[in-house]
């Protein structure tokens, strides 16, 4: 799949993505639609390894969890921050502004981003997770409460749309849009906005993704329930740097 064909799946906002953005707008924030959003994004429920729904209250504070979205092979980080994360304006890879709609959940502190580095596509695999959220300051960059990619020390702010704080990355990680259902406390992944990188991701890793996720399954979109678990359980090595 070339970047071009893949990009066709990303068009101006529709359906669920627009709905998620509307939440931010309703809260009185100025909302700028992203130039790219996943077309017909799957709506999936996040569940724990045992298949039971993952509730917002079950997610520990400072969680550094992983699930796969929007494709079976594309990892995303699920993070519970200390503080509510309000909608934030960030810029995509072409320098176009868009609004990241902010954290969800009772405390508006649950966020999710693609675990594929916007710099050189390092990602979180079963063998090694190069991108991790950690509350403590890391040695390599001195930043705390950030997502760090330890391959080249790119640092992203999960409380602000994964804005780049340091390192060679030039634009934020793609943001997974989450929804929280208050009645059941369940979490759903419903869309993806920001900068499209999946064409390049598949191109770079096709061989290993086929092996790990199935020859054609790796590039199929997820559906139904999707398992989320701590990175350190998913991956042999959650790299600290």
């Amino acid at each position: 799949m070339t970047e071009k064909t893949d990009r066709r799946q990303f068009i101006r906002l529709c359906g669920r993505t627009a709905a998620a953005m509307a939440v931010a707008r309703a809260a009185g924030h100025r909302v700028i639609a992203p130039a790219f959003a996943l077309e017909n994004p799957p709506r999936v429920r996040l569940v724990k390894a045992d298949g039971s729904p993952l509730k917002a209250k079950d997610l520990p504070l400072h969680a550094n969890w992983i699930f796969h979205y929007p494709y079976h092979s594309s990892p995303a980080l699920l993070i519970k921050l200390d503080d509510p994360a309000p909608p934030t304006e960030v810029e995509d890879k072409d320098g176009k502004a868009y609004t990241w709609p902010g954290g969800v959940g009772p405390d508006k502190n649950i966020v999710a981003y693609a675990a594929i580095c916007a710099h050189a596509l390092s990602y979180d695999s079963k063998e090694t997770a190069f991108l991790n959220y950690r509350r403590e300051r890391n040695q390599m960059t001195g930043h705390g409460r950030v997502i760090t990619c330890c391959a080249h020390a790119s640092v992203y702010d999960p409380a602000a749309g994964a804005k780049v704080l340091a390192g060679p990355a030039k634009f934020p990680l793609a943001a997974v849009l989450l929804e929280h259902r208050a009645e059941t406390d369940e979490l759903f992944a419903v869309g993806l906005i920001g900068s499209e990188l999946y064409g390049e991701f598949f191109k770079a890793y096709r061989k290993e993704l086929r092996k790990a996720f199935g020859r054609s399954r790796y590039k199929k979109m997820v559906e139904g329930d999707v398992v989320a678990m701590p990175v350190k359980e998913y991956s042999e090595d959650a790299i600290k740097c």
Binding site: C117, T128, C150, I239, C241
Partner: peptide, 19 residues
């Protein structure tokens, strides 16, 4: 862990130059 990052450092930059 830095050993793993070391190898990924190179692979990432090869992607940056050749992809």
């Amino acid at each position: 862990q830095l050993g793993k990052a070391n190898i990924e450092w190179g692979k990432g930059l090869y992607r940056d130059m050749f992809m």
